[in-house]
Design a binder for these strands. Structure first.
Length: 207
DNA sequence: CGACCGATCGTCT
DNA sequence: GACGATCGGTCGA
């Protein structure tokens, strides 16, 4: 049970890191309340060369500045005016790679998650989607820029869970049709047959 | 089931 | 002024 070190995030291969995040535990402590879940679905965004990335072509705006921070920083942005999507920045500073956390299997503070999401029972709709993950864990855009290596609010732990590579599924990313040929990249990774994986269009051919 | 639609607002052109 | 790295509800089959 140890927090992932900076060296985990600052490596060069965003795809490799996206896969390695599967099985890790994302933890938040908001107003003293701990909530946590095991990461079961991620998406890689390969920075300047990836049309689906907010940093495509080296775009650097107020919103995307944190993507240029060192790996291990949180990048949270507002999507569709409603959802706060949580990403983990990777690679060295100035290389704007990021990994979107799309789904979790709830582990700690499930009562609090239900309260935040106005639900009664912890079925698979609680944390199966990037908007729902942030909602359940209390993550908002004001946490953008947070350093997951030292933060007392958000971090990621290795609990010793080992994922067999044959249990990792790959697919195209959700909602990035505008990215042309880059939309075809197999950059979505998930745990096969895990009930907490999100159900969007073009999703894992499992159930 | 699947298709469609409205909500809602910061960001960038 | 248009547009989302989404979600949950509704409607029809």
């Amino acid at each position: 049970m140890s927090r992932l070190p900076e060296s985990f995030y600052t490596r060069d291969d965003v795809v490799k890191i996206s896969k390695e995040l599967l099985g890790k535990r994302l933890v938040t402590k908001i107003n003293g309340t701990v909530t946590a879940g095991m990461i079961v679905e991620t998406e890689a965004y390969a920075g300047e060369t990836d049309r689906a990335s907010h940093a495509y072509g080296g775009r650097r705006t107020n919103r995307t500045t944190v993507m240029y921070k060192k790996g291990g920083s949180a990048y949270v942005y507002l999507c569709y005016g409603i959802h706060d999507l949580f990403n983990i920045v990777s690679n060295e500073a100035e290389i704007p790679h990021a990994i979107l956390i799309r789904a979790l299997a709830p582990v700690l503070g499930i009562e609090k998650m239900l309260e935040r999401c106005h639900k009664k029972k912890p079925d698979h709709t609680l944390t199966s989607g990037p908007g729902k993950v942030s909602r359940a864990l209390g993550i908002t855009t004001k946490h953008s820029g947070e350093d997951l290596v030292t933060s007392q609010l958000i971090w990621v732990e290795d609990t010793g869970v080992k994922i067999n590579p044959r249990n990792i599924g790959e697919a195209t990313r959700v909602g990035v049709a505008y990215a042309k040929e880059d939309a075809l990249r197999p950059y979505r990774f998930f745990l096969k047959d895990n009930p907490w994986v999100s159900r969007g269009k073009g999703l894992p051919p499992s159930s």
